Computed example of a mutant assay.
Amino acid sequence: MGLFKRNPFGHILFIKKWVIRIIGSLSHRRFRGFNELQIEGSEIIKSLPDKNVLFISNHQTYFADVVAMFHVFNASLSNREDNIKNIGYLWNPKLNIYYVAAKETMKSGLLPKILAYAGSISIERTWRSKGEDVNRQVKMSDISNIKKALDDGWVITFPQGTTTPFKPIRKGTAHIIKHYKPVVVPIVIDGFRRSFDKKGLRVKKKNILQTFEIKEPLEIDYENESIAEIVEKIEYAIEQHPSFLKVIPREEIEAQEELNKLRKWRLEDDY
């Protein structure tokens, strides 16, 4: 690899490699130390093609979710079986992993800007901006950037577009799946909301069970399935379909949302 070789977004791969190494080293104890991340399905990662793979997941914090995925993916590719022991897997990380994130989030400070270099595809949210509801058109450049990333490697996306549980799936993810026909791999995470603050930067509580389940790729009829059918398939795959509320009491979900609001206000006061 040439010292100044770049990816399709202009990032120098040598620098990106060191960003991943440093962030991974600093964050490792958050998933294996303060807390213990229980992983299931790492063998699926090793069987995936090198390009045109879309990971879909529920979302619990801004950054910890993605950082955990970088750990799990690279550990799995280095023959770790459902664990992230021995961070030697960070020495030669997979460099064509990208993740979809809100542009305003990735520009909110120095650390987010550094994290963005690890592989952010920053997009403008069409439904919310600066804490207020908006309604604007999807930017075609955002869609083309996701396509560019899929052509180069793997893309992580959180189709609800929010860390609040059981919110509707954004149809944009289904459109991307239908038009670009990626291999779609669902991931279900839990425990991150209890372990970290909303941003996923501060350890809020230790000794929390964190789980990370990688599921088999979805079977999708790209030509014949409708957007609505793909959306429903995503909801079930990442366990965010309304039917799951029958298992989790609504009162518990509402109480968690109120706690998240309080944490947000406290964070704003801290800054």
Rank of each mutant, 00 (worst) to 15 (best):
E40V: 13
V72L: 08
E268R: 11
D152C: 08
S226M: 12
K167W: 14
K215T: 03
I45S: 06
Q210N: 01
G10E: 02
I234R: 09
P182I: 02
I39K: 08
K205A: 00
K94T: 12
A101Y: 09
I84E: 12
L48D: 13
A101F: 11
I220K: 14
I169K: 07
I114N: 08
E223T: 14
Q160I: 05
I22F: 10
R6T: 10
L262S: 05
E239H: 14
T211Y: 06
V183P: 01
R30W: 15
E229D: 13
K113N: 07
H71C: 01
L150Y: 08
A102Q: 04
L245I: 05
G33F: 10
Y180C: 01
Y62P: 00
R250N: 05
R202P: 03
N145Y: 05
I15M: 06
R6E: 11
P93H: 02
S108Q: 06
K167I: 05
V247G: 04
E219W: 15
E216W: 12
N74K: 04
K17W: 00
F70H: 06
F34P: 05
I20N: 00
Q137I: 10
S226N: 12
E132N: 07
V155W: 08
E251P: 02
E132C: 03
K204H: 09
I87A: 06
F55T: 04
L150C: 07
T61M: 03
K17E: 00
E219Y: 15
T173I: 14
A64E: 00
V185A: 07
I234S: 10
A149G: 06
N86P: 00
I44C: 04
Y271L: 15
L267Q: 15
G200R: 04
G172K: 15
I230A: 05
K204T: 01
L218T: 14
I234G: 02
V183Y: 04
Q256H: 03
I176N: 04
I45D: 03
F212G: 01
V155T: 02
D65F: 01
D269C: 15
Q256V: 05
N74F: 06
K46E: 10
K5H: 10
F244P: 02
D133M: 15
L54K: 00
L259C: 07
N86A: 07
I156S: 02
F158E: 09
G191N: 09
P249E: 13
I187T: 07
T164V: 11
Y180D: 05
W154Y: 11
V66M: 04
W91E: 13
K178Q: 09
I45F: 13
I121V: 13
I177Q: 00
A102K: 11
H59E: 04
F244T: 06
H175K: 13
P112L: 07
I238L: 10
Y89W: 04
I227N: 13
K246D: 11
K5Y: 11
I227F: 11
R193Y: 15
K178I: 13
Y236R: 14
I20G: 01
F73Y: 14
A228S: 15
I177E: 07
H175R: 15
V134W: 14
K206Q: 14
P168E: 15
I143E: 09
Q160S: 08
L111A: 12
S76M: 02
G10N: 03
L3R: 07
S57P: 00
